[in-house]
Every structure is written in C-alpha cells, then in structure tokens.
C-alpha cells in the first residue's frame, strides 16, 4: 500500500510538530479518564473512615520501590530524547531499552505485590477499596505495558536512525504515566 505522507501531516500552523501536538491531546484525554476514576476513589476514601484500615494492608515498600523505578525510567526516557535530539539513534535506542527495563521491573514488583495481597485474601471483589486498588493500578499497569510495546517498536527504528522524533513523543507519554503513578502512590500507599 502506498504510504506517502499527506501534506496535512507536514504542516505545522501551531509551530508544534503534528505528532507531538496529537500526543498532548492524548495525554489530555487520559487526564480525564484517570481523573474520573481517582476522583471517584477519593470521594469514597474520604467518606469511609474504615478505608484507612484497608489501606494499611497495602505494601508501602513495594509502592516506594515502584515510584523509584518509574522516576528512574523517566530519567532514561528523557536521556533517550536528548540523544535523539543530537541525532544519536543507537544511543537513544539504548536508553529506550533501559526505560523498557524499568517498566519490566515495575511490573515484576507489581506482580510480587499483587501475589502477596491475593494470597492474603485481598482480591478485587473483597471490598470496594480493593476494587478501586486493583482497577486503578491495573489501568495504570496497562498503560505501562502499552508504553513499553510502543517503545520497543520505536527503539527498533531508532537504531537505524529512523523516526527519531518519535523518541520524544513516547517519552512524553511515559512521563505522563509516571505522573499518574506519582499521584497513585500517595493516594493508595501513603495516606493511611
């Protein structure tokens, strides 16, 4: 199939490249999705005193480790962007792989954490606190997985110096996922 790029894609009346502009709108729409879920959680969390008891069963150490992992992977993502900006494709790809590694670590910690909780009897249907816990973390986790897959594809291109501007776009997305976690962390793990 012919894959010529339309001229529309190449115009930039705003001065922001099209892909990046679209990514900001993606992030905008994600803000309301997570915002709706977390606002719902927050209302119930503030209403039920008993939820702080439930929250005391969450694993703060795992949450903190994951925050550290995501912050570090964000550093790698921005370094990848920096390398791409300088036109160093392979280096950018290397940093992207480190970012993916961070994502994998995050998921491993998450898996260990969930296994522990489920074995203690805290499943998604245990009560509504845990329903929110698994839904919010699960939705966030899906974003992590999605970001890792895209990052893999982009790294594959970046090695050969192709589509280097996408390194920045996926980085933006990754930082956003990081920010969501930055808010999930106190909401779920710290406020008890």
């Amino acid at each position: 199939m012919a894959t010529a790029i339309p001229i529309a894609t190449q115009r930039s009346a705003t001065g922001i490249p099209t892909g990046k502009l679209a990514l900001w709108w993606v992030i905008g729409s994600e803000i309301v999705i997570f915002g709706g879920l977390l606002a719902s959680y927050l209302m119930m969390r503030l209403m039920y005193d008993s939820w702080s008891d439930a929250a005391s069963h969450t694993n703060t150490v795992a949450g903190a480790i994951n925050t550290f992992i995501l912050l570090t992977s964000s550093l790698f993502a921005v370094l990848a962007h920096d390398a791409a900006e300088r036109g160093k494709g392979p280096q950018a790809a290397g940093y992207l792989l480190l970012t993916i590694g961070g994502g994998l670590n995050f998921l491993v910690v998450k898996a260990i954490e969930w296994t522990g909780e489920i074995s203690h009897g805290f499943t998604i249907t245990t009560n509504t606190f845990w329903s929110f816990y698994y839904t919010a973390c699960g939705l966030h986790g899906l974003h992590v997985i999605g970001g890792m897959i895209c990052m893999g594809i982009i790294a594959f291109d970046a090695v050969r110096g192709k589509n280097l501007q996408r390194v920045e776009y996926i980085g933006l997305y990754w930082h956003f996922v990081d920010i969501v976690w930055i808010f999930l962390f106190p909401l779920i793990y710290i406020a008890k």
Binding site: S29, I31, V32, I33, G36, S40
Partner: peptide, 16 residues
C-alpha cells in the same frame, strides 16, 4: 474528549 473520561472509567467499573 474532556467529558468522556469519567464515563470511560465508569464503564470499566460497571463492567467489573
């Protein structure tokens, strides 16, 4: 885009 987010979250919750 600005209004559908909470309902997407709500749809996930209701689906669960």
């Amino acid at each position: 885009m600005a209004s559908v987010g909470p309902l997407i979250a709500g749809a996930v919750m209701l689906l669960f």
